[in-house]
Design a protein around this nucleic acid. Structure first.
Length: 357
DNA sequence: AAAGTTCTCAACCGCTTTACG
DNA sequence: TCGTAAAGCGGTTGAGAACTT
């Protein structure tokens, strides 16, 4: 296009900001708002390019920024969201209130990535490193499994993007909108627009991915085929093992999510014929209203994502998974027999959540 | 205590996306 | 529909801090 970069102008300052510059920028924005970033430096009396001002404001000066150490909850959220979204830092940041994408990116690169690597988990694929090459079991089906998952992941990202795009078309609905079962798709989409859409996708994905990891190699089927997703394939990972099946702890918050209904509904999600509106309607039927309202009020999105409806009992239960299991799963040769490989997959999400303990 | 090494994170770069005339 | 400006985003860099030898 031939447009010159905004910072090419001679005489513009680069590098670290001084307190005086910060003060000027802060004072100007507080008084006038940022308006056009390109025009701001001249108006504010700064020898900086607009881009630099914008970055400084967004990543440092904004009053609603939380600085300092990341909490355990935040770390877990980042790991889980990264497994879901990859390096889409801005998308991840939308679920960590008061954290910037830059900060999350830095934290991932300097802390979490290394920690996962140390534990023998590929920070890109979020799978045990030897598995990534399909050689853990020496079984070619492992490679097919991975390829299959990659295709599914690709389709999932596309679906997520579409869902978000469609939701953006809907005008602002009232908060805490109750969506009765069987309501029209338009009102459902209005409800979808009241909160970060990614929550839905994450919730679904959490179910899907644990389900995928539970497949045995011989029964591996297309996740888009509801016909092959039978009851005996229901996941027994993160939620079922720790929260329902083996736990005496009641699922107080996200009833449907904890109970079998969630997993039954998952079959519907996996149906490729299920339109996005229908999918969204399914997400927002009555069974999810409680947790939606609860989290809308509390604004505690990250809690909801990681632990489902912020249920402390669930968190404790999940956190109680033995760390020895993790060490066994990911230590040394990182693989071995086919059956242990299955166990690895089955427990993967539990392990990830335990990594940062 | 000094030198060398590693780590952290603010800031920059350049590409992509969005908005608008 | 097209072209341009502005904003957004993710990858990378480098100065300074922290740590090790």
């Amino acid at each position: 296009m031939g447009r010159s970069p905004c910072c090419d102008k001679v005489g513009l300052k680069k590098g670290p900001w001084t307190p005086e510059e910060d003060q000027k920028l802060l004072a100007y924005i507080e008084q006038h708002g940022h308006g056009s970033w390109r025009a701001l430096p001249a108006k504010a009396g700064l020898q900086r390019c607009g881009k630099s001002c914008r970055l400084r404001w967004i990543n440092y000066l904004r009053p609603d920024i939380k600085r300092g150490k990341f909490s355990l909850q935040e770390e877990q959220t980042i790991i889980q969201l990264h497994a879901l979204l990859g390096n889409r830092w801005s998308a991840i940041a939308t679920h960590l209130p008061k954290r910037t994408d830059n900060e999350i990116k830095n934290y991932w690169n300097t802390h979490l990535k290394k920690r996962l690597s140390k534990m023998g988990i590929d920070p890109v694929t979020h799978k045990p490193k030897t598995d990534a090459l399909g050689s853990a079991t020496g079984n070619p089906k492992d490679a097919a499994n991975l390829s299959h998952m990659a295709q599914w992941e690709s389709a999932r990202l596309e679906a997520e993007a579409r869902l978000v795009r469609e939701s953006k078309l809907v005008s602002n609905p009232p908060p805490n909108l109750h969506i009765p079962a069987g309501s029209s798709s338009s009102s459902v989409m209005a409800a979808a627009a009241t909160r970060p859409q990614c929550l839905d996708v994450l919730k679904a994905w959490q179910g899907v991915v644990t389900g995928l990891f539970t497949f045995n190699n011989d029964n591996l089927q297309s996740p888009t085929s509801p016909l092959n997703f039978t009851e005996n394939m229901l996941p027994n990972g993160l939620i079922d093992d720790n929260l329902v099946g083996n736990s005496s702890v009641p699922c107080e918050g996200g009833v449907e999510y904890c109970s079998g209904n969630y997993w039954k509904n998952k079959e519907r999600l996996l149906d490729s014929s299920m339109g996005l509106h229908e999918m969204s309607a399914w997400f927002h039927q009555d069974s999810y209203k409680e947790e939606i309202d609860m989290n809308m009020e509390g604004n505690n999105y990250s809690d909801m994502m990681v632990w489902d409806s912020g249920n402390d009992h669930q968190q404790n239960s999940s956190m109680a998974a033995p760390i020895e299991n993790l060490n066994e799963t990911n230590s040394g040769d990182g693989g071995g027999s086919g059956s242990s490989s299955l166990e690895e997959n089955k427990n993967y999400w539990n392990n990830i959540l335990n990594l940062v303990r």
